[in-house]
Write a protein that binds this DNA or RNA. Structure first.
Length: 422
RNA sequence: GUGGCUGUGGCGCAGUUGGUUAGCGCGUCAGGUUGUGGCCCUGAAGGGCGAGGGUUCAAGUCCCUCCAGCCACCCCA
């Protein structure tokens, strides 16, 4: 019988890959907690309509990347392709806005997008999300960005590029959009690639982000959103920049930074790395005032970001697994019960280690002990059992002592002495 | 969805123009005389060559389909 294999674009993460994810989560809980964020867990499955309404019917994500299927009663469900929509749904449904004017939440878990896998792009991938709901002041944007910045620094990541832009609001965007369309229609028909000619009508902002060389050249002189912001947006953006400057956060202004989800307005940002393949975005986010209202909730402002955990993990330096304290070697099967009891006592003292279940020769057991990387090999056989003792061999130094099994203090003392490095 | 490359024991690889029982390194396990590791030596286990068809007297080696991986486009975290 053929063994069943995993489906395309998903991953099994064993040690030490799994430890990188654990680290990302641990540091996130710590840092985000310091900023007052509470953890939220939301379902992976939602009604398809939630994503269609929030992300945008015309986006690539909704058009061709969602895992959507009818359940047994014919309801259309979707495996979430991003987290914000579900978090907003949960907030509205649980009326969290009625309790407090400012809501800070973070969440992480798997997301699903039906795409062709490649480096840094999985069909099941994981995101770390943070959302700040309520305040619309630029200092709120600044705090969110500072939190992301702090998180990345505490992970020890230096070589990241921080890009910032403002997409404008419902008041300034139509004018800018028209300016763009006018500019594009003034170009030679062949100046833009086929996709971009279509985008000129559907999503002219996206043309600015096209990587085709011809398009890059053709849009070099295109009008920039930052020159078309309304007074409110311009002031907001200026205040945000001032706040970031004051905090020493280094960033690059990228007037061509366009996000792929329709709900973004105003401040947008992206953290990129050139070390993780052609998918460069490690984290991205922005302001989404109006999203909660559009999903049937009150008109509260919001800003947040998502971090791609797989991509971030690629940048993390390798972590060495913690070495065990002991390896309990069994020399005679008759001592198995005593070995289990001893191991349990040691673990009760907070020590880490493995024990043999099957007895073997001293040579084979010591070999195994050496490979385990343990500091001590404890040997227990018929002789020791008769004497009521256990042999403790220092695997780095080589010294060996015999300790009475019942002598807790002597056992504890063994592990308290500084280990000899060899 | 498109394109290129790839798929041989746990891991990394070699396998001549298709031809006897598919090799190597690492790893795993055991042994190198009395209950003691890490180096060294010896031996053993473990694959029928991603899956399924086809061509042939004969296929890991040729053809087809599918699956998976990698990289890129696209898109995004």
């Amino acid at each position: 019988m053929n063994a069943i294999q995993k489906i395309k674009g998903v991953a099994d993460l064993f040690e030490p890959d799994s430890t990188a994810f654990t680290r990302l989560e641990t540091v996130a809980r710590e840092v985000f907690g310091r900023f007052g964020y509470a953890e939220l867990r939301v379902p992976v499955l939602e009604k398809t309509e939630l994503f269609a309404r929030s992300i945008g019917e015309e986006t690539d994500v909704v058009q061709k990347e969602m895992y959507t299927f009818p359940d047994r009663k014919g309801r259309l469900l979707t495996m979430r392709p991003e987290a914000t929509a579900g978090i907003m749904r949960a907030c509205i449904e649980n009326k969290v806005f009625a309790e407090k004017p400012v809501v800070k939440l973070f969440s992480f878990g798997p997301m699903f997008r039906y795409e062709r896998p490649q480096k840094g792009r999985m069909r099941q991938f994981h995101q770390l999300d943070a959302e700040l709901l309520g305040p619309k002041e630029p200092e709120a944007d600044a705090e969110v960005l500072l939190m992301l910045w702090t998180y990345l620094r505490e992970l020890g990541l230096q070589k990241l590029c921080f890009e910032l832009n403002s997409l404008g609001c419902a008041r300034c965007r139509p004018g800018y959009r028209q300016a763009l369309v006018d500019y594009f229609s003034g170009l030679a028909p062949a100046a833009l690639c086929e996709d971009c000619r279509r985008r000129t009508n559907t999503n002219p902002l996206r043309v600015l982000d096209c990587k085709v060389p011809g398009c890059k050249a053709a849009t070099a002189g295109a009008p920039l959103i930052t020159d078309h912001l309304c007074p409110d947006c311009a002031a907001h953006f200026a205040s945000l920049r001032a706040a970031l400057d004051a905090q020493g956060v280094e960033y690059t202004l990228n007037p061509r930074l366009v996000r792929g989800l329709d709900y973004y307005v105003g401040t947008t940002f992206e953290i990129t790395s050139s070390d993780i393949g052609s998918q460069t975005a490690v984290a991205g986010g922005g302001r989404y005032d109006g999203l909660v209202r559009d999903l049937g909730g009150p008109d509260v402002a919001g800003i947040g970001f998502a971090i791609g955990m797989e991509r971030l993990a690629m940048l993390l330096p390798g972590v060495k697994p913690e070495a065990p304290d002991f390896f309990l070697a069994l020399l005679d099967q008759g001592a198995a019960g005593a070995a289990l009891a001893l191991a349990q006592r040691l673990r009760g003292m907070g020590l880490r280690g493995d024990m043999d279940f099957t007895a073997g020769s001293p040579k084979s057991r010591l070999r195994a002990a050496g490979k385990s990387g343990a500091r001590f090999c404890l040997l227990l056989g018929a002789d020791e059992l008769n004497r009521g003792t256990v042999q403790a061999k220092d695997l780095a130094g080589g010294g060996q002592t015999e300790v009475p099994l019942e002598d807790l203090t002597a056992l504890a003392a063994l592990f308290e002495t500084p280990g000899s490095e060899a």
